[in-house]
Design a protein around this nucleic acid. Structure first.
Lengths: 123, 123
DNA sequence: ATATCTGTTATATTATTCATATAACAAATG
DNA sequence: CATTTGTTATATGAATAATATAACAGATAT
């Protein structure tokens, strides 16, 4: 799986890393049971510090995307708390849709965007 | 318009403020042409520093939600760049939907969330 | 067994961001 | 003329982000 970090981005490196791994899971590039590279290995590949990768993995664990197996490393394993996920999504969507609403983006256009993105996930 | 700041939140105060003003515009609590409180006034009302409000207003101006009129202050005036707004929304939605996708939230459930939120805007 | 590789923890340093405080300016208002 | 507007400048303290070394226990491989 290819990781691309934008060092000019205002977004923290560990969050960029987290987001790309989540996108990798959603698009099935990484699947349940797969093992992520070791923190040292991935850090070297990307050219960042070990602790930055470690922080991304810690966030992913805390959010229920991976478990840490001392023998294997970070393993994709989804812990689903759907109610919590829905509540979080609602809050984040509210702000994004509010912004879109002010910019004349219609409900239908949002639906189309959602469909397009979901289609990307299923390829 | 009621502003509520969560000082325990990890989200920056100026961003909480920005988000709530955008939500206010989307729900038509604030309308085009309305004038926001002065930076000093709002800062005092909320109990935060003047510069924090100023930063929120500067972001809102930069994002095309208000214009600054030296006579009136910060006036709601929407500068719509729909293509840009759509591109931004797509990027932000991708991560949020990816996370939801991993948590077994279906396309249909996202659509329902979107509809619910849009309904909130039209009240 | 010995060396290597895992996640994890600890400590320290640097840079950046966030929020604060004080001060001042030009333009507009009353 | 005093007050209020947005705006700018500068400074400080706190928190965060990313880095660098170092060490530990457990697992793996030679």
């Amino acid at each position: 799986m290819l990781i691309e970090i934008d060092f000019q981005s205002g977004e923290a490196i560990y969050m960029q890393l987290r987001n790309q791994i989540i996108l990798g899971i959603a698009t099935a590039v990484i699947q349940e049971g797969d093992v992520l590279p070791s923190v040292r290995q991935l850090a070297e590949d990307i050219g960042i510090n070990m602790h930055t990768v470690n922080k991304a993995y810690a966030v992913l664990r805390q959010e229920g995307f991976v478990t840490i197996d001392r023998r294997k490393g970070a393993v994709i394993s989804l812990d689903v708390d759907k109610a919590k996920a829905l509540a979080e999504m609602r809050e984040q969507l509210s702000v994004i849709l509010a912004k879109g609403c002010c910019k004349n983006i219609s409900r239908a256009e949002v639906h189309k965007l959602v469909d397009d993105i979901f289609k990307d996930f299923q390829e």
